[in-house]
Amino acid sequence: MTEMLEIETPAAGVRLIRLNRPNKLNAINEVMRDEIAQTLASVASDVDVHAVVLTGAGRGFCAGIDIRNFGPGMLEASAPAIDRLRFQEAMAGLVRALADLPQAVIAAINGPCVGAGLALSLAADIRIASTAATFGNAAILLGLSGAEMGMSYHLPRIVGAGVAADWMLTGRTVSAEEADRRGLVSQLVEPEQLLERAIEIANGVADLAPLGVQLTKRALQVNIGAGGLGPALELENRNQVLSHATDDAAARRSTWS
């Protein structure tokens, strides 16, 4: 049971994770942080889950960290540096856990997607957004570095270094249209169609061979930083040899027309 998350199985092999603090635009407090971490750990080891949809309840995706009402774990600037580092590492761990899921992750961004929310969306494999969505890197507006929770790693790889620098150094609000134009999201849909479309995508992925999906996800993650075509081809070749020998691949080849 979770207090700050809604967990559903809308289709076979699809797990829906909904951040559920709608009155706070799903800002992450201590309870939600811990529940996200625990849920992702559970999903990672669940062989019956083949695709994950991450979204928010109400009109927001995630407004970042709840700096006013995070909970007893929130630290003052006067706290020892080692304790503040542990706090930051716990937050950043959510991004690593999401990116490390063996399943494909679809972020269905239904509204404001700010700070930690933006970081979580960047860790997804596929991002689709409502036309009502907005995006922002909020940390720099609070006197902090705009590079947090994997932002300086993921964002330049998705939208390019120049666009990432613009968004991260200014902290400005980015519209759904601009996010789509810059390649941050792969689709824009009307608000009432967003979740249905995300589940449709997830269901399509869940119907594919799980090993093929997992090897594809890992190749994308590794080869975006590959030192050249040669190392990228080596990984792809190995993956094809591994997946070709499976019973699942043989069964699918037998029905190919």
Rank of each mutant, 00 (worst) to 15 (best):
G71D: 10
R172M: 11
A209H: 14
N29C: 09
D166K: 04
N239G: 07
G146A: 04
V163D: 13
C62H: 00
A164C: 10
S175T: 07
G136H: 00
G111I: 15
R84H: 06
L208E: 14
Q103C: 05
V14N: 03
G93F: 06
L16E: 06
E6H: 15
E178Q: 13
G150H: 05
I109D: 02
I82V: 11
E89T: 07
D66N: 14
A27Q: 09
P191S: 15
G171R: 04
E35Q: 08
R157P: 02
T216L: 11
A97V: 02
A116M: 12
C62M: 01
G162R: 13
Y153V: 04
V241F: 14
V14I: 01
Q38Y: 13
T39E: 15
L98K: 12
T39V: 01
Q240W: 06
V159D: 03
G230D: 12
R33T: 00
I7N: 05
L169H: 01
G71W: 13
L122H: 01
L144K: 14
N223L: 08
L155D: 01
T255A: 04
E200V: 08
L101W: 01
A11E: 09
G230H: 10
R33L: 15
A132V: 03
G56V: 07
L25P: 00
V52R: 06
V114M: 13
P10L: 04
D66H: 15
R218H: 06
R127C: 01
I224E: 03
Q214H: 00
Q240L: 13
A123I: 04
A165L: 01
S130P: 01
I82F: 10
W256C: 09
T255R: 14
N69C: 02
M168D: 02
T9H: 15
R21D: 02
N223D: 09
L101C: 03
G64W: 10
E89C: 02
G183H: 08
V159R: 02
Q38I: 00
M32L: 12
E30T: 00
A79H: 12
N223W: 04
A202E: 01
V114I: 15
R172Q: 07
V43T: 12
P80A: 03
L211I: 09
L141S: 06
A119Y: 07
L155F: 08
L85I: 11
I36R: 07
T246H: 08
A51S: 03
A123S: 04
N137S: 12
G204P: 06
A250S: 12
A226L: 09
E236F: 10
I65C: 05
